[in-house]
Design a protein around this nucleic acid. Structure first.
Lengths: 218, 218
DNA sequence: CGGGCGATTGATTGCCTTCAAACGTGGTGG
DNA sequence: CCACCACGTTTGAAGGCAATCAATCGCCCG
């Protein structure tokens, strides 16, 4: 199930594209362990092998904003400048491949195709950040949660059953809500038979169309 | 390489960095004219010579989200994929330099330094998008408006007087508020003597420290 | 002078946050 | 094996803040 060899090369490798495959080392991180910190020099780039990772930033008043969740196969921590612009933490115990950033720099400076693929990776991140802005902008709590579930389920694509690795607090800080509001929204989705919640972390997608309808609602 | 006079070259040139200076043509756009549309093939990249530009996207329910304001000197409309991910409109009458995107592609495929500078440009956009997410996330109306004024004034850096090119509706759609709330927030800032509003578009920054204090407030 | 658009101000509603308490579950030690 | 505690989650009640609805004002332009 999760020990798939198709998207994950046998070796400890980060594949950013056909012309950009870099060898690194595998590391284990415990739950809530910090993988790298904001402002730290960006010495490595990372790929999730198993487990889940969150990237976060803190606003001036100390509140936590989760920028993204990274699931197996995802590359994260790739910076353009010299320092990390956010903190990364393990949501649960996870295996991470680390590649020296200098290898990426070297590849990009020797091969324009590699540079191009790095650019495309950054462009995808930019697009995701803008999509997230749209969700936060003018959507209510229920719509945000519905949108989150749909996207997250699509990324895993394991049928109707989704195992959430993150807590309500993580979801809340991602969607800019409170844990209470997230909980209420999920309960409401269950009441409407859009989802089922056998346990708090286990979501069964009952009706995608109902979720999509709720997501689009003003 | 380029005949660039500080920020506004005499020629119709887009300078992205020392190794990436591209010649194009100058165009005029009227107020509210569309410069390019979402989903359209990205044939050109753009730089503001004079005037102001907004880039926008529409959410599923038809609401308008302004992603960024572009002022003289700013480069915009640079896509990684083949199509524009947003629409660009002239806020007021403006002069725009357009450069064929194929020139950028060619430069990046021939010179790794050019590719690198393109990457850095995209990285800056990503950082700005993330910063914007933080502002929208857990800030109240007054704080958002204060943050907007501070940043915008810093970009123009003409002393205390700032001439806003955009309407209240534009500010509202940028900050994910309503025009009424933006108006109230500005009135409140004036009441507190943080700013003065001789006319609705003319802002005098009276007390930066007061604004910064308000911006940081929970 | 009149029309139209943008901006301001006011009153009310609704949603999310906050504060508070109870619930369930997993882990630990008796 | 069970009691107990800690933590995450759910549920409830009250309040606050921005959206909405609505009206007025000011200004630019014809």
């Amino acid at each position: 199930m999760s020990a798939n060899q198709d998207s994950t090369p046998a070796g400890d490798v980060i594949d950013i594209g056909p012309a950009l495959s870099l060898r690194g080392t595998r590391m284990h991180f415990d739950r809530n362990a910090e993988i790298f910190g904001e402002e730290e020099p960006a010495e490595y780039i990372y790929r999730v092998v198993s487990g889940a990772v969150r990237t976060i930033r803190f606003s001036a008043d100390g509140r936590r904003q989760i920028l993204a969740f990274h699931m197996p196969g995802d590359v994260f921590g790739v910076e353009i400048g010299g320092a990390h612009s956010c903190t990364a933490e393990a949501i649960n115990a996870c295996e991470i491949v680390m590649v020296r950033r200098s290898l990426l720099e070297k590849a990009a400076s020797e091969d324009v195709r590699a540079a191009r693929q790095w650019l495309e990776l950054t462009g995808q991140d930019l697009r995701k950040a803008q999509d997230h802005t749209l969700i936060l902008g003018h959507k209510g709590a229920g719509e945000r949660v519905a949108a989150f579930l749909l996207r997250f389920a699509d990324r895993l694509a394991r049928g109707a059953d989704v195992e959430l690795p993150m807590s309500r607090a993580d979801i809340a800080d991602y969607l800019c809500l409170t844990i209470e509001t997230v909980s209420r929204a999920l309960t409401e989705l269950e009441r409407r038979c859009a989802i089922a919640l056998p346990t708090s972390r286990h979501v069964v997608m009952r009706s995608r169309s109902a979720l999509m309808q709720l997501e689009a609602a003003a």
